[in-house]
């Protein structure tokens, strides 16, 4: 990708704004589980110069819960954020692919709730269309 700054470290160079934020996240079985609303970065303290020897690290993706602060500013309570650890990410392409099933992340609770309380109770809800 010619329009990105050159970087010496090996591996894929990703622009957070361009390649991570607002990307679709797929679980191990290619099932969509959410969009990246925000990211959490470790290693930045206000008022302290960044140390080139230990650069900041992306720790978590925040899915489907950090969008209002991004639009209007402010900080939501940390307990309300649905996090996916960066270590779960397997690949970043036109979607971000995870190596674990969606059910192991908080962000899918509303999907599971609607499934268990509404959709699966309607006749035919668990059958494939014919």
């Amino acid at each position: 990708m010619p329009d990105l700054p050159q970087h010496e470290s090996p591996g894929q160079v990703l622009d957070v704004e361009l390649h991570i934020l607002d990307r679709q996240v797929l679980d191990r079985d290619d099932v969509p589980i959410g969009h990246v609303d925000n990211i959490e970065v470790d290693g930045i303290e206000p008022g302290r110069e960044l140390d080139p020897a230990s650069p900041p690290v992306v720790t978590n993706l925040v899915l489907n819960s950090g969008i209002l602060p991004r639009m209007f500013g402010g900080r939501p309570p940390a307990s309300r954020l649905h996090r996916v650890p960066w270590s779960a990410v397997r690949n970043v392409g036109t979607a971000i692919e995870l190596g674990e099933p969606g059910a192991s992340f908080d962000v899918t609770w509303s999907e599971r709730w609607v499934r268990d309380h509404v959709i699966a109770r309607i006749p035919g809800g668990r059958h494939a269309p014919e």
Partner: peptide, 23 residues
């Protein structure tokens, strides 16, 4: 709505596998 929010969607899935989409 499902694609914007990143929900599971599609008629190729069973309704229970795309619950919010069907709702």
């Amino acid at each position: 709505l499902a694609q914007f929010n990143g929900w599971s969607w599609g008629k190729f899935r069973r309704p229970a596998e795309a619950a919010r989409f069907h709702l």
